[in-house]
Design a protein around this nucleic acid. Structure first.
Length: 765
RNA sequence: UGGGGCAUCGUCUAACGGCAGGACGGCGGACUCUGGAUCCGUUGGUCGUGGUUCGAAUCCACGUGCCCCAGCCA
C-alpha cells in the first residue's frame, strides 16, 4: 500500500506542509506508488544557503516518504557551466548529509533522448523551426499587455521543419539563424505559452559533451522531460516557475507514452515560496562582486553565505538542517530573521563544544601577592553541569595573567559585573581577585591592572566579600599566542537589496576583525577539528585553511547570546504601515445604467444589497438567477447563487442546475433539513455531481434525534470539565469549541443550530 | 497596465467553517563560578471593507499591498 509510506508527523524531518499534504493525498489515492523527487542545480556557481533550503525540501521530503531524491545537474547552457561547480555541488550536498546512491544525473546525458522527443513534436506538427531574428522574435512575442502574433514561419510543413532542425543539429547554421519552438499559442495571456523556444543553436564547448552538440535544449524543454525520464513524481521548485508549469504540463501531456516515456507515472510540478535571509545576498552576480572587489577573501570566506563559507566558518550541517526545519515551507516568499539561523548554530554547538578560555584583546593583570615565577595547575571541567558531559583539563595559574580588556572598566556603567578598581571578581575556575590599581599610559589608556588574589577563594566564595561576576583569563607564561578572526554580518542592513543604490553601499566594513591574543595551553593538544566555546566569547574553531599550523588561527563561528550589551540593537519596526483605506465609494452609483436596472430589480424582489450588487456586475450570475426565478423567489436563491455557487457560475463550471437548486431550497424552507445540510449537499453536487436534493435527503436521513444529541452533548461536556469551567467563567469563545466537538463527534449528523441552542440554554448564555 | 502567485504576532509557521497555537526575537523573573545554557512568566497577530453563516483566518465580492512573467538564462 502506497499509503503506508506516509510517515507520522512525529517522525518527519520536514514539518508537514502543503506539499506533503498533496503527497499524502497522492499516496492515499494510489496515484503514485513511491515518491521520487530531484534536486536540480545548474552547475554555474557555488551552492549557498538557498541551496541548503531547497535541497532540504527536495531530499528531506523524499527521505520522509522512504522515496528517492535524485541529484541532477541541470546543465543545458554550455556557456555558464563548469566541472568544478559540479564537484562543489556534490561535495556540499554530501556534507549536508544527502545521499543519492546511483541516482546522480546530468541533463546533458539526456541530450540524445531529448533530441528525439523534439523530432517527435515536429512530426506531430507541434513544434516548428522559426527563422526570425532574436529581435524579431521578441517583437512578435508581444508584451505583457499586447498579445503576440504568429511568426511567418509558424506554418512550415513537417518535412521542412524536420529537415531544418536536422541541419541545425548538424551544425550547418550560424548561431541565431533558427530556433525550434513549440506551437502553442502566440496570444496566450501567459507569456510562457507564446510558443516557447525549445532549442537554440550554440557553437560552444560544453564542459561534458564538448562539441558533439550544436543545438541545446532550453530549460522549459529539458527540465520537465528530464523529470519524466527519471521517473520523478513530484518536481518541487520555487515560485518563480509557476508560469512555466503550463509548458511543463503541455510537454508531459504531449509526449506521454512516446519516445520511451511511460504513460505513468507522470511528473508534476509543485512550487514553494522562496526564502531569503536578512543581511545576506546570494545571487551569483552579487557574490562575485564581493569576491572580485576583495571585499571577501574568496568564495569560501567565512562571511560568505556559500556552503563552503559556512563550513569554513565552522557551522555544522546539522545546524543548517535545523534551521531549514524551523523556517518551514509555505507558498509565500519570505525573508527569514537572521536570528533564527544564529539560534540554530548556537543550539547545535552548545551541547557539543568543550569550554575553554581565550583572551582576544589581552590586558595584563598582575597579582602582587602571588609568588613570582610560580605556577599552579587548576582543574577545570570541559562542560558545565547542564550539558552534563564528562572531561576536564588542567589550567595553569600564576602571578601574571591576561584578561579581556573589555572586562575592565575605569568608570563602570550601572549593573557592571566585571573587573573594576576596588571590586572583587571571580576568575573563572580559579580565585577571586581584587583590583587595586589600573596603570595608564600617557594617553590615559589602561595598560595594566594590579591587584591581589584571595587564596581561600578557590571553589568557594570568601566570606564578607561581595563577588560580582566571573571573567575568563589565561596565564601569561604558558598561554598560547593565537589569532582570532571575528566575523560579523556582511551587510549593515537587513535587506541590502532593497531601496535605492547598490547592495555594496551596505557592505559592513567591520564584518571581519582580526585580533591577536592568547588561548589556554590545553588547546594545543586538542583535535584541531574541535569546535570550542571560548567562555563568554562565543564558539570558535581553527580555520581549516590557515589555522591548523603551529600558530593557531581561530574563526569565531558565532557569538554567545549577549543580553548585557548596553546599547541594545533595536530591531527596526518592520512592516511599513499599509496605505490608508480608500474610502468605500458608492459602488452602486458606479454601476452602468443597465447594471443599475438589474440592481434595482433585484432589490425590488427582496435581494440583499451586497448580493444585488454582485449580480448586477456579473452577467453570468444574473442569467443564472433569472433561470432560478422560474422555479422560486429570487430573494431565496440569491445568497446561494452568489456565495455558494458564485465562483463556479462565474467560471462557467456550474454543475447544479437552477431547477435543482430551487428544488433544494424549497425543501429547505419547509424545514426538511437545515441550512448546513443544504450547503453540504450543494457543495457535494458541485464537486462530484448528483442531485443536491437527493444528497441533502441522504445527509438528513442520518440526523440525530434530540435525545441522541443531548447524550452526545453531555458526553462532550463531561470530557472537558476544565473547559466547562472556563465557559462558565465567561470564556464564551468556548461555545464554538463545544459546538465543533459535538459536530465532529456526530460526524455531521447533528444540527449545529440545535446544539448551540441547547448549550446556550444549559449555560444561560 | 495583461496574466499568474501570495497576504496570520517584530520574524518564520500552524489551525476538517468551531479555543487563533508553536518557534525565534523582545521584556521580566528564578537559577548560575559563562551577562551562556536551563526553567518559569510575559508581550504580540488574522491586510481593509462589505456579505454568507448559529459560528469566518478559512467561503463569496470589492479593494489594498508585495512578488513573478515580455532571455535564443535557469
Amino acid at each position: 500500500m502506497p499509503a503506508s509510506r506516509i510517515p507520522p508527523d512525529s517522525e518527519r524531518l520536514v514539518p508537514p506542509n502543503f506539499i506533503t499534504e498533496i503527497i499524502d493525498a497522492d499516496l492515499r489515492s494510489g496515484k503514485y506508488d513511491e515518491i521520487v523527487t530531484r534536486f536540480p542545480p545548474e552547475p554555474n556557481g557555488f551552492p549557498h544557503i538557498g541551496h541548503a533550503i531547497a535541497s532540504f525540501i527536495d531530499c528531506g521530503i523524499a527521505r520522509d516518504y522512504r522515496g528517492r531524491c535524485h541529484l541532477r545537474m541541470d546543465d543545458t547552457n554550455p556557456l555558464t557551466e563548469e566541472m568544478r561547480y559540479v564537484e562543489a555541488i556534490k561535495r556540499d550536498m554530501e556534507w549536508l548529509g544527502w545521499g543519492w546512491g546511483e541516482h546522480f544525473y546530468f541533463a546533458s546525458d539526456y541530450y540524445g533522448r531529448l533530441y528525439e522527443m523534439a523530432e517527435q513534436l515536429i512530426k506531430e506538427g507541434k513544434a516548428y523551426v522559426d527563422s526570425l531574428s532574436e529581435e524579431e522574435i521578441r517583437e512578435y512575442r508581444g508584451t505583457v499587455e499586447k498579445p503576440g502574433r504568429p511568426s511567418p514561419y509558424r506554418e512550415r510543413s513537417v518535412e521542412e521543419n524536420l529537415d531544418l532542425f536536422r541541419h541545425m543539429a548538424a551544425g550547418e547554421f550560424e548561431e541565431g539563424a533558427h530556433v525550434l519552438r513549440a506551437k502553442i499559442d502566440m496570444s496566450a495571456a501567459n507569456m510562457k505559452l507564446r510558443d516557447p523556444i525549445l532549442y537554440r543553436i550554440l557553437k560552444a564547448e560544453h564542459y561534458r559533451t564538448g562539441d558533439r552538440w550544436k543545438v541545446y535544449p532550453m530549460y522549459d524543454f529539458a527540465h520537465p522531460l528530464s523529470d519524466y525520464i527519471e521517473g520523478i513524481t513530484h518536481s518541487l521548485c520555487s515560485s518563480e516557475f509557476i508560469d512555466n508549469r503550463a509548458v511543463y504540463d503541455w510537454l508531459v501531456e504531449n509526449l506521454a507514452g512516446k519516445c520511451g516515456l511511460p504513460e505513468w507515472p507522470r511528473p508534476k510540478q509543485i512550487e514553494f515560496g522562496r526564502r531569503s535571509l536578512e543581511y545576506t545576498v546570494v545571487s551569483k552576480r552579487k557574490l562575485i562582486q564581493l569576491v572580485e572587489r576583495g571585499l571577501v577573501e574568496g568564495w569560501s570566506d567565512p562571511r560568505m553565505p556559500t556552503l563552503a563559507g559556512l563550513r569554513r566558518r565552522g557551522v555544522r550541517p546539522q545546524a543548517l538542517i535545523a534551521f531549514a526545519r524551523k523556517v518551514g515551507i509555505s507558498r509565500t516568499d519570505r525573508t527569514v530573521d537572521i536570528a533564527l539561523l544564529e539560534w540554530a548554530i548556537r543550539d547545535d554547538l552548545n551541547p557539543i563544544a568543550p569550554r575553554v578560555m581565550a583572551v582576544t584583546e589581552p590586558l595584563k593583570l598582575v597579582l602582587t601577592n602571588y609568588p613570582e615565577g610560580e605556577l599552579e595547575e587548576l582543574e577545570a571541567p570541559y562542560f558545565p553541569p547542564d550539558v552534563g558531559k564528562p572531561g576536564s583539563r588542567k589550567v595553569p595559574f600564576g602571578r601574571e595573567l591576561w584578561v579581556e580588556s573589555a572586562d575592565f572598566a575605569l568608570k563602570p556603567p550601572k549593573g557592571w559585573k566585571r573587573l573594576v578598581v576596588g571590586g572583587h571578581t571571580r576568575l573563572r575556575h580559579a580565585y577571586v581577585v581584587r583590583i587595586d590599581e589600573a596603570v595608564t599610559n600617557d594617553a590615559g589608556e589602561v595598560v595594566e591592572l594590579r591587584g591581589v588574589y584571595l587564596p581561600e577563594s578557590l571553589g568557594k566564595n570568601p566570606e564578607g566579600v561581595k563577588v560580582k561576576g566571573a571573567v575568563h583569563w589565561v596565564a601569561a607564561g604558558p598561554a598560547l599566542a593565537a589569532e582570532f578572526r571575528l566575523y560579523d554580518r556582511l551587510f549593515k542592513v537587513p535587506l541590502p537589496d532593497a531601496g535605492e543604490g547598490s547592495f555594496l553601499d551596505h557592505y559592513n566594513t567591520d564584518s571581519l576583525k582580526v585580533l591577536q591574543g592568547y588561548v589556554e595551553p590545553s588547546v594545543a593538544t586538542g583535535d584541531p577539528e574541535t569546535r570550542y566555546q571560548f567562555e563568554r566569547l562565543g564558539y570558535f574553531w581553527r580555520d581549516p585553511e590557515l589555522g591548523r599550523g603551529e600558530r593557531p588561527v581561530f574563526n569565531r563561528i558565532i557569538t554567545l547570546k549577549d543580553t548585557w550589551k548596553k546599547p541594545k540593537e533595536q530591531k527596526p519596526a518592520a512592516k511599513p504601515a499599509r496605505k490608508a483605506e480608500p474610502k468605500r465609494e458608492d459602488k452602486v452609483a458606479a454601476l452602468e445604467p443597465e447594471q443599475r436596472l438589474v440592481f434595482d430589480r433585484c432589490r425590488h424582489l427582496g435581494v440583499g444589497e451586497a448580493e444585488a450588487l454582485q449580480i448586477a456586475r456579473s452577467e453570468k450570475l444574473r442569467v443564472y438567477l433569472e433561470d432560478c426565478s422560474g422555479y422560486g423567489p429570487p430573494s431565496l436563491a440569491a445568497p446561494w447563487v452568489v456565495h455558494v455557487l458564485g465562483k463556479a457560475i462565474r467560471a462557467g463550471e456550474v454543475r447544479v442546475t437552477p431547477a435543482d437548486l430551487m428544488e433544494l431550497l424549497a425543501q429547505l424552507e419547509k424545514g426538511v433539513f437545515d441550512r448546513r445540510t443544504a450547503k453540504q449537499a450543494l457543495e457535494q453536487a458541485q464537486e462530484s455531481g448528483g442531485t443536491p436534493l437527493e444528497l441533502a435527503r441522504e445527509l438528513a436521513a442520518g440526523q440525530m434525534t434530540a435525545d441522541e444529541l443531548q447524550k452526545l452533548i453531555d458526553e462532550v461536556l463531561a470530557e472537558n470539565p476544565d473547559k466547562v469551567a472556563a465557559l462558565k467563567g465567561g470564556k464564551t469563545g468556548l461555545l464554538g469549541f463545544f459546538v465543533g466537538q459535538v459536530m465532529r463527534r456526530s460526524q455531521g449528523r447533528a444540527n449545529p443550530e440545535q446544539v448551540q441552542s441547547v448549550l446556550r440554554e444549559q449555560f444561560n448564555l
